[in-house]
Amino acid sequence: MNQAKKDYIFYSIVIIFAVFFLTSTPQIQSTNQSFIIGPTTWPYILLILMVFLGLYGIVSTLIKAKIMKSEEITAVQGETEPVRKIFKLSIPIVSLLVVIIYVLLLNIIGFIFSTILFLYGITLLLGTKKQWTAILFSIITMAIFVILFSVLLQIPLPRGVGVFRAFSLFFY
């Protein structure tokens, strides 16, 4: 995808975002009418500016793209490096999915188990070759985090539900 196309998408998203919030602004019910400037004025100013900037962005990209076309793009895309992929997805996307799964599990199976699973999975994904290194790393790191935060700093980490909650109460 070339830069101009990316820019069109970006500015369109900006406009969609602003319009969405613009349409939900009138629903704000002011609870106190005694102020000269109510709670909706400021958001209106911001959103209208945003729409204008979005439109300006699209127009300026259009003009730029025209100039670029007349100069003819001869630059060859230099991405020949083979990219490691898993299930046709790039590593950052897979990492992101792993993080999302971790966060979702956090509330169900608690910090201890989800962190072990996450650390084990992500270290292998990022290129650790030895199984044992990953297993040891994930368990020891989790233990350090629990001791440091829950025991020493008394920060309550997520416990999960049911059995997992009961299990976590043994440790913190």
């Binding site: 970006f10 900006v14 975002f17 919030f21 939900s24 704000i28 019910q29 002011s30 609870t31 106190n32 102020f35 109510g38 709670p39 909706t40 400021w42 958001p43 911001l46 959103l47 500016l49 945003m50 900037l53 979005g54 300006y56 962005g57 300026s60």
Partner: peptide
């Protein structure tokens, strides 16, 4: 600069979510 300005506006918008400090009105809490 255009993108930067959009970024600032986006940030300012995020900060309006929740209870309005002056009137106590709820904004964009859906």
């Amino acid at each position: 600069l255009t993108k930067g300005l959009i970024g600032v506006l986006f940030g300012l918008m995020i900060s309006t979510i929740g209870m309005d400090p002056l009137t106590g009105t709820l904004r964009y809490t859906f």
